[in-house]
């Protein structure tokens, strides 16, 4: 069924239609949440809250791109979760432990040797750690642009930030990521070695 028809049906109370939208976007929503929050359980909770919130806020959807509208709700849910974690630092430590020991599920598993697989996991963890080290506002922009490959105008729509703010936050986030990844250069594949190495 067409996405617009699903949205229309869900807006009129068809929860099955809404669940079809959930199934279509839950991987994207969870990925964004995980990249922003950096902790799987909290990311799952934020994703679930975002879908529930989206269901009850469908009246506020006015025909823009549904994915952007949904990711705005996901981003807000992530901000809420991050604020909760800042109020309860102990919980965030538990989350970090979970991240360390929980392997990232991969949607597109490529046939690789166990050694390659282990190396890739380490690299992914290092990148995620660098992402986690970013300030929240820079991390959100970096995830949306570099992980989800959104255009700047879509970031403006999702975050509600001015275009100039998006650009400046993104450039600062990338500069920090560059510096962070230099610290784990031994994990980087040769093609990704940075220029000063």
């Amino acid at each position: 069924m067409d996405e617009n028809k699903l949205i229309h049906a869900a807006r009129h109370g068809d929860i099955d239609a809404f669940n079809r939208l959930v199934l279509a976007y839950q991987d994207t929503a969870y990925t964004v949440a995980y990249r922003i929050i950096g902790e799987p359980d909290a990311a799952a909770d934020a994703t679930q809250e975002a879908f529930i919130s989206a269901y009850y806020k469908l009246d506020q959807f006015h025909g823009e791109r549904f994915k952007s509208w949904l990711l705005r709700i996901v981003t807000n849910a992530c901000y809420d979760e991050l604020r909760r974690r800042q109020r309860r630092p102990a919980a965030s430590l538990d989350g970090l432990e979970n991240v360390t020991f929980r392997p990232d599920p991969d949607l597109n598993p490529v046939p690789e040797s166990p050694e390659q697989h282990a190396q890739r996991r380490e690299l992914n963890r290092a990148i995620q750690d660098c992402l986690d080290a970013l300030p929240d506002d820079q991390r959100v922009v970096a995830v949306l642009v570099d992980v989800e490959d959104y255009a700047y105008q879509e970031i403006v729509a999702i975050t509600g930030l001015p275009l100039g703010t998006v650009k400046s936050r993104l450039s600062r986030a990338r500069a920090r990521m560059r510096d962070c990844l230099r610290a784990v250069r031994e994990l980087l594949p040769s093609e990704y070695r940075l220029m000063d190495e």
Partner: peptide, 24 residues
């Protein structure tokens, strides 16, 4: 070149599969 390499690394991050269904 440094920035391009950094962006490429981050974009290499795999897309994640949702750990469970979030259907209501």
């Amino acid at each position: 070149a440094d920035l391009r390499a950094t962006v490429a690394l981050v974009r290499e991050l795999p897309r994640l599969k949702a750990p469970r269904s979030f259907a209501l």
